[in-house]
Simulated assay, not measured.
Amino acid sequence: MTSRAERKYRAATAFQRRIGNPLLRRLPFQTLLETRGRVSGLPRTTPVGGRRVGDAFWLVSEFGERSQYVRNIKADPRVRVRIRGRWHTGTARLLPDDDPRARLRALPRFNSAAVRAFGAGLLTVRVDLDG
């Protein structure tokens, strides 16, 4: 990763960890992704942007495999997603062969703009929702 990309990563993750995520988690209709901590086994909740299409929920990780929730998915792909205030269980799949920039064009505009602006190493994630 270039030094510019590394600076973007450090600045964005510091902001998300200390300010953005704690505030967004409290909003009742913010979409949330819940993974299991790969070391602790405790639930980890991350605000995400994405869209449900049929029985799948699509999102793009702005830092790809460096994102903590992606690392948790690699350890245990069973997740929950809160969409419009309702929790759904599912199995997350990392799709490195998908074009994340093209995928962002099909996802909510505001979040997609932020992911494009701050992201480095984008990665598409699909959650296959149960029933």
Rank of each mutant, 00 (worst) to 15 (best):
F63M: 01
L23D: 04
R17E: 15
D128S: 03
P100V: 11
P108H: 05
R126W: 01
R25P: 06
R38N: 07
E62L: 12
A56T: 06
T91D: 01
V115F: 01
T91C: 06
R109D: 13
A102K: 15
A114F: 07
T13M: 12
A14G: 11
F63E: 10
P96W: 10
A113I: 01
G85A: 04
A113S: 11
R44W: 00
R103P: 08
D98F: 07
S112W: 03
R78N: 03
F57V: 10
T45S: 07
I83M: 02
S40Q: 02
K8V: 01
R17M: 07
P77K: 15
D98M: 01
G119L: 02
R18V: 12
V70E: 09
A5Q: 02
R116A: 14
R25K: 15
R71E: 09
A56L: 05
R93M: 07
G41L: 10
S61D: 12
G90Y: 02
D97A: 15
N21F: 11
I73G: 10
V60Y: 00
W87I: 03
R7P: 03
A75G: 11
T35L: 10
L27M: 15
D99G: 10
P100D: 14
P77L: 08
T31D: 01
G64Y: 03
P96D: 07
G131T: 05
R4D: 06
T2I: 00
N111E: 12
A120S: 14
L59W: 04
G41Y: 09
G37P: 10
A92C: 05
R7L: 09
G50C: 01
V81C: 06
A113R: 11
A106L: 15
P77M: 12
S112N: 15
T46Q: 06
R17Q: 11
N111V: 12
L129C: 09
G131E: 12
V79L: 07
V125L: 08
Q16Y: 14
A102P: 04
P100K: 14
E6D: 14
I73A: 04
V53A: 11
S3C: 02
G37L: 08
S40L: 00
G50S: 07
A14S: 14
R10I: 00
G41S: 11
F29M: 15
D130I: 13
T13L: 02
A5K: 00
E34M: 09
A120T: 13
S61L: 12
